[in-house]
Design a protein around this nucleic acid. Structure first.
Lengths: 213, 213
DNA sequence: CGTGCGTGTTACTTCCGGTAACACCGAGTC
DNA sequence: GACTCGGTGTTACCGGAAGTAACACGCACG
């Protein structure tokens, strides 16, 4: 009964919400994740309480903001992951997609990786609950693809999840470091990481002059 | 000329500093990284300005605190990394050392991974500068060991650094996820990760019913 | 005796997240 | 046309945290 009536208000509320999110986006991209609610409200041309009415609290706003970017990135990754190519190519394409994304918009990336924090009266403090939702989602997503596509024998589901989170973490940490120091080209980085996943660590020989026990 | 005079004051100042750090440690371990300077001062039986005289600002205190734990963890890891065993065993021992550490003291671990944040007037916002100093140090350390021990052919130094940071990231992300969900035993996790590094991802067969492109 | 100097305190400023209370405005109703 | 009502907006405040004076005690050294 209210579905038809709702549309009008709902649509306008949704549009407002999107405008607010875009303003918040601009501010966060400019000032970093420490951007204040006042600043965001000012950018949107309004005042704080409105933000709170729309998003509850700062965490809510940041979560909404993060969801937008996270969804976008995950879509790109899914595309690379599902491409009709052989495994190595798909892995490299996925790595490259992720690295391209963080290279193109490092501020977004920084924000996504360290969203929450700072809330006073932080209760239970369950380890691992927040951290980085994006990493978790990427890990789960990758785990699913691995489990669907690869024959890993018994315990495959568990193994796939470990690998999913592990590979995502590898990608993330290497990307973070690379972005800070730019020690090599993106292509080289992708190749090096793929080599690592392809077992080159195990296959490498000992160094000749290595400390001989 | 002042070296002899200094010893006395210096020693007492150092002892005081250590006491303060220990108090801070207790509070942070109890209340999480959001612990206030007031709370830390109270735990130490003093008041805020003293903390500021010793550590400059909250970041300084947290950095000092982080350094203690980071150094300790890195020592353990170095021991595992340098053990006289074959490569696979060393890798497993290192993974296990890290995972044991975060399992034994999750609060410390949480603190180390998300130390800073929250400072207003955060200038330049260089991506990747802060993030997690511990991860960076671990990555560099591992890179060094890899480069020392393995024969990786041309470009070995670059490759070692990529791998160092990548492997550390893998360990971290998998550990973080594991700590939150506890989906398997530590031994299984270690084995799964070592398998990943040993190329099982590349070696696995396609699943029979997999979507055939 | 007094003059530094290290150690400590109280009391303050500033800023931020979050909230309460009030003000305006357009639509539907009698 | 007056009246209410929901949505949008505001100002003004609270509580708490970081960080900073400014002042006070104690102790060695001339």
């Amino acid at each position: 009964m209210d579905t038809t009536q709702r549309t009008d208000q709902q649509r306008s509320a949704d549009r407002r919400r999107r405008e607010l999110l875009e303003a918040a986006d601009r501010v966060v991209l400019r000032d970093g994740p420490g951007a204040s609610m006042n600043a965001i409200a000012a950018e949107a041309g309004i005042t704080k309480p409105i933000l709170y009415r729309h998003f509850g609290d700062k965490g809510g706003l940041y979560a909404a903001l993060a969801k937008r970017h996270t969804d976008a990135l995950l879509d790109s990754l899914r595309a690379a992951l599902d491409a009709p190519a052989d495994r190595r190519e798909r892995v490299e394409a996925t790595l490259d997609t992720y690295l391209s994304a963080i290279e193109a918009r490092p501020q977004v990336y920084r924000f996504l990786m360290h969203p929450a924090e700072g809330a006073p009266s932080e209760q239970g403090f369950d380890v691992g609950k927040h951290s980085a939702p994006l990493l978790r989602r990427m890990g789960e997503e990758l785990a699913q693809v691995i489990e669907e596509r690869l024959d890993l024998g018994p315990g495959s589901q568990q193994l796939a999840r470990v690998w999913g989170h592990g590979i995502v973490g590898m990608m993330h940490a290497a990307g973070d470091w690379w972005l800070g120091e730019r020690p090599c080209s993106r292509e080289e980085l992708v190749r090096s990481l793929a080599d690592l996943l392809w077992g080159r660590l195990a296959a490498a020989g000992d160094k000749v002059g290595s400390p001989g026990f």
